[in-house]
């Protein structure tokens, strides 16, 4: 078959070799970036990096990493879920307002119901009606944020309190350094990682994102895949809201809203293509850690809000651009 394939031959140049090596190991530069940021932080404020600091960073990063899972999986199919933040806020708020009547566990489960419903509606819109995911999830966030406001009005008498079980889970650490939320996050992350690589459903997410027409021709019912995907995304978002309420120790109707764009940023920094078909969850987890450390760094620098936002944006862009260059390799 020598005649029919384009000749492939490795070509010299240490730069090219390094790039090819990096392209196959996208996590390496991300971990280096993370380590660099941590080192820089220690230089700027000696002594800040401690066991406690690591635990607290992880506590803050975990809800973001869960939201980034929603973006990673939807982006793999070429979609996006811009309703995750309002859904997370909604779940946190519903849990905090119902727990005094029905207890923390039932309240948490009840709080996941509307999250699942929103995800299901998103999935039906995107998967069955073929609405553009950006549009569908933006529209649903309008509905959700309005609905949370309406709910808040009607619930003016009942107080909001985050039960101690949830704050223990989100805000406390085992033996002083192992965040309790890791206990739920590690199995969850492992499940997502294995599912994306080794399960039929995970493969289908990549397949749909790579080529929807081809997937359909191969017999994949793309609509069903997407309905299930956005349902999962909604449930995960609700779950992230509960954890974050535990980290903060209180809940309002807009608690998690500011996490929307960082959740997208974490997935993008982690190397998942917004056009679908490429990427994975491991990068998104590191992306969430990088963003969390970055926020700490900007706080430590006592940068004014304006500068923090500008730097935040610039760093997202720089990482995405670098990443694009490494993976394209041309």
């Amino acid at each position: 078959m020598t005649g029919s394939a384009t000749a492939v031959e490795p070509r010299g140049g240490p730069l090219v070799v390094a790039r090819v090596w990096l392209r196959d190991r996208p996590l390496v530069p991300l971990l280096l970036l993370l380590a660099g940021l941590v080192a820089l932080l220690e230089v700027v404020q000696p002594g800040i990096v401690s066991v406690n600091w690591v635990a607290s960073t992880m506590r803050f990063a975990i809800p973001l990493a869960i939201l980034a899972a929603c973006q990673t999986m939807t982006m793999l199919t070429g979609g996006i879920d811009l309703s995750v933040a309002v859904v997370a806020s909604m779940s946190a708020y519903v849990m905090a307002t119902t727990q005094s009547d029905i207890g923390w566990l039932a309240a948490s489960l009840v709080a996941l119901v509307p999250a699942g419903v929103v995800g299901l509606v998103n999935g039906i819109g995107v998967g069955l009606f073929r609405v553009h995911p950006l549009i569908m999830t933006i529209s649903m966030s309008l509905v959700v944020s309005g609905a949370v406001n309406v709910y808040a009005r009607s619930n003016i008498t009942g107080g909001t309190r985050v039960p101690s079980e949830i704050t223990d889970l989100g805000g406390q650490s085992l033996l002083g350094f192992l965040p309790n939320s890791l206990i739920v996050f590690i199995p969850l992350a492992a499940l997502i990682l294995v599912a994306l690589r080794r399960s039929g459903y995970g493969r289908l997410l990549y397949a749909v994102g790579d080529n929807e027409v081809a997937s359909r021709l191969a017999g994949v019912r793309v609509g069903r895949v997407l309905v299930v995907l956005y349902l999962i995304s909604g449930l995960l978002a609700g779950f992230a809201g509960l954890i974050y309420a535990g980290v903060i120790g209180s809940a309002t109707g807009r608690l998690v809203d500011p996490f929307l764009l960082p959740s997208v940023a974490a997935a993008v920094i982690g190397g998942t293509s917004i056009f679908g078909g490429r990427g994975g969850y491991a990068g998104s987890i590191v992306g969430a850690l990088i963003l969390t450390v970055l926020v700490t760094f900007l706080n430590v620098m006592q940068a004014p809000e304006a500068v923090r936002q500008i730097l935040f944006g610039a760093i997202i862009l720089a990482v995405a651009a670098t990443y694009t260059r490494i993976t394209e390799g041309s």
Partner: peptide, 27 residues
Amino acid sequence: VLVVISRVPDIVVTLAMLFVWAGAALL
């Protein structure tokens, strides 16, 4: 220009610039 030279998808570039211009407004 950033979209063109970075070769990063438009949605990601303008997402990043959303922060930059909002920060500039605060400045």
